[in-house]
Amino acid sequence: MMRTSIKLLGLALVLSSATAMAANNVTYNSSSMSSAMSSVMKGTATKNADNTDLNARDKSGATLTPQNQSNAEPDIEVLAAVRSAIVEDDDLSTAAHNVKIMVEEGVVTLRGPVKNANEKNRVEELARNVAGVVSIDNRLDIDTN
């Protein structure tokens, strides 16, 4: 029952899109509409997430990721304090608020995209000012999109 409802909703969305395109005098061949309808019905995404390419390097296992995060209490406390410092800075973008943070024996590794060099430096500065941080490994990427 639920699957049928979802398919009908998808079909209605495709049909309303086709109607809107026709109203705007936009022409598409039947194979492109069929492909678009198939994509909607299957629920497949047509565009990669913003940082998909940046995360590709994590697949090899050679790069430190949040799954490698130490469970030692001092490291967890430092991680929480660094995250709080970053999130509390309202001048940072959402991307900067969501950087990956890993802490092992007080060494903080920062990973992920930020908007510009100023944000990259600001995130590092905020992390450096947290008690218990021994050093920073700043691997933040500047998003060029």
Rank of each mutant, 00 (worst) to 15 (best):
S135K: 15
V133S: 05
R3Q: 09
V133M: 10
E104Y: 11
I142F: 07
S32W: 15
K115Y: 01
N138G: 01
S70H: 08
R111S: 14
A127T: 12
R83K: 15
A45M: 15
K120S: 10
E125R: 13
S135Q: 15
G61I: 13
A80G: 01
N29R: 09
L110I: 09
D50F: 13
G112L: 12
V108F: 14
R128A: 02
A12C: 10
T4K: 09
M2Q: 11
N48W: 08
A18D: 01
S32M: 12
M21D: 00
V99M: 03
P66L: 12
K120C: 05
L13S: 08
S16L: 15
E119A: 13
S34K: 09
L13P: 01
Y28S: 07
S38A: 09
T63G: 03
N118F: 15
V130K: 06
L8V: 11
S16I: 15
A20N: 06
T4Q: 12
D75V: 12
S30A: 14
L8H: 06
R3M: 03
T4A: 10
L15C: 08
L79R: 08
R3A: 08
V134D: 03
V130F: 04
S30L: 14
A18R: 03
Y28W: 07
V108I: 14
A20Q: 10
G106F: 13
P66E: 03
A95Q: 02
D50P: 02
E73F: 05
D89V: 04
A20D: 00
N68M: 14
K7G: 00
N71D: 04
D89K: 01
T65G: 00
S16D: 02
E125C: 03
G132R: 07
K115H: 05
N129C: 06
K7Y: 14
A23W: 10
T52C: 05
S60N: 06
K100V: 01
S34M: 08
A96N: 06
P74S: 04
T4Y: 11
A12Y: 14
N98F: 00
A95H: 00
V78M: 01
P113L: 12
S5E: 07
A62N: 07
V133E: 06
A45P: 01
M102G: 04
K59N: 03
M37Y: 02
S31N: 10
L110Q: 00
V114Y: 05
T144K: 14
N98V: 02
A49K: 12
T27W: 04
A85S: 13
T52V: 08
D58E: 09
V107Y: 03
T109E: 02
M41G: 01
D75K: 03
L13R: 07
M41L: 15
T109I: 07
N68L: 13
R139H: 06
V26E: 09
M41C: 00
L64D: 00
L8N: 12
A56V: 14
